[in-house]
Computed example of a mutant assay.
Amino acid sequence: MKIACLGWGSLIWKAAELPVASDWFAKGPLLPIEFAREGDSGELATVLCEGVAEVQVLWAFLAVDTLEAAREALREREGVPVEQPACIGSWPSGPQSPFQQRIAAWAGEQGLDAVVWTALPPRSGGLNQRMPSVEEALDYLRKLDLERQAHARDYIRRTPVAIDTEYRRVIAHTFNWQPAPEAQLDLDASA
């Protein structure tokens, strides 16, 4: 099977145990992504958010034989509890997602058999499904202790420049957190 993983955040530079079997490619599907999840380490992580501008995400092949193995590998990498299967999206089967048809059409164009992606919700003020306003996101980042703020800065700076969102532009301007050199990935257009 030809199985791909979609990425828009730390998977790109820190795949860890995720069995990525290729470089990351440009020209993934257009998806609504924003820096809208308060992470456990302080980062304001990128997540799918309905109602925000779309960006073209990245993708890579995975060295797995089944969709179930791909879902499990991504679940482990993301630290998602087994009891939360909806936090790992997949096509052609898996929890229903408002983005499934779009991803399916893109996967068909790429000749893929299956696709997985992280489907963690926005989180603000400790509440899942709550997207922070841009002002709340800035306030959250301002109030972090120095170590957690440094981690948040590195996350935003290392996220590929292709993930050009409204919050990223405001955060970069406010804190002068410009993209790191490695965020300027030399991406192949296709596999």
Rank of each mutant, 00 (worst) to 15 (best):
A73D: 12
A73W: 15
A73K: 14
L74R: 10
L74F: 07
L74E: 13
R75G: 08
R75Q: 15
R75E: 08
R75C: 10
E76F: 15
E76C: 15
R77N: 15
R77A: 02
R77Y: 14
R77F: 15
E78F: 02
E78S: 06
G79L: 11
G79R: 09
G79D: 12
V80A: 13
P81I: 14
P81S: 13
P81D: 10
P81R: 12
P81N: 09
P81W: 13
P81T: 14
V82W: 11
V82E: 14
V82D: 10
Q84P: 01
Q84T: 14
Q84G: 05
Q84K: 15
Q84V: 11
P85N: 02
P85G: 00
P85V: 05
A86R: 03
A86N: 09
A86Q: 13
C87I: 01
C87F: 15
C87R: 07
C87V: 06
C87L: 14
C87A: 14
I88N: 11
G89I: 07
G89Q: 05
G89M: 14
S90V: 03
S90I: 02
W91H: 04
W91A: 00
W91L: 08
P92R: 00
S93D: 10
S93N: 08
S93Y: 08
S93K: 08
G94P: 00
G94A: 06
G94V: 01
G94Y: 00
G94L: 01
G94N: 02
P95F: 01
P95L: 03
P95E: 04
Q96I: 00
Q96C: 02
Q96T: 00
S97N: 04
S97A: 11
S97M: 05
P98D: 05
P98N: 02
P98C: 08
P98G: 12
P98V: 10
F99S: 00
F99G: 05
Q100H: 11
Q101I: 03
Q101F: 04
Q101E: 13
Q101P: 01
R102S: 02
R102D: 08
R102M: 09
I103M: 03
I103D: 04
I103G: 01
A104H: 05
A104D: 10
A104P: 02
A104I: 07
W106V: 01
A107I: 05
A107R: 04
A107S: 04
A107C: 05
G108Y: 09
E109F: 02
E109L: 12
Q110C: 13
Q110G: 01
G111A: 07
G111M: 05
G111K: 00
